[in-house]
Amino acid sequence: MNIKQLSIFVENKPGRAYAIAEALSNNNINLSALSIADTSEYGIMRVIVDDPEKAKKILQEAGVMVKITDVIAIPMDNSPGSLTKILKILTDADISVRYMYAFVNEHKGGAVLVTKTGNNDMAVAELSKFGISTLDNDNLF
């Protein structure tokens, strides 16, 4: 099962990240997780929000380049070794990780690993063999 991530182009200029955050907060969009991949010139901000389609529209109207990307969200214990366990499953199945980031899910008492892999469908299938069911946008929060 995949979830929708917003991938946002952010020029490396003062105020750009602020403009994005402001546009989202003005429209009452909640951010659950965020990571930025950066170069010296620009970054790609990856965020998980409660309403990705609405957020995309808001950002587009604000003149921001944004795309929705399928990623997988993997629930894990907030304890040592849980990340290792997941990565071992992916590694053993020869699935590459393009990028990943994680956040703690207060309400559900655990953590969530968000990742884009070389083959998301295969990753989901492999994880389910070990009793790990990935989350979707609805049961993420």
Binding site: Q5, S7, A37, I44, K67
Partner: peptide, 18 residues
Amino acid sequence: EMSETMFTDEIEAVEKVE
């Protein structure tokens, strides 16, 4: 200016365009 065809979620792909 960044366009739809040029942008993706991965740095590597955007760097490739650049």
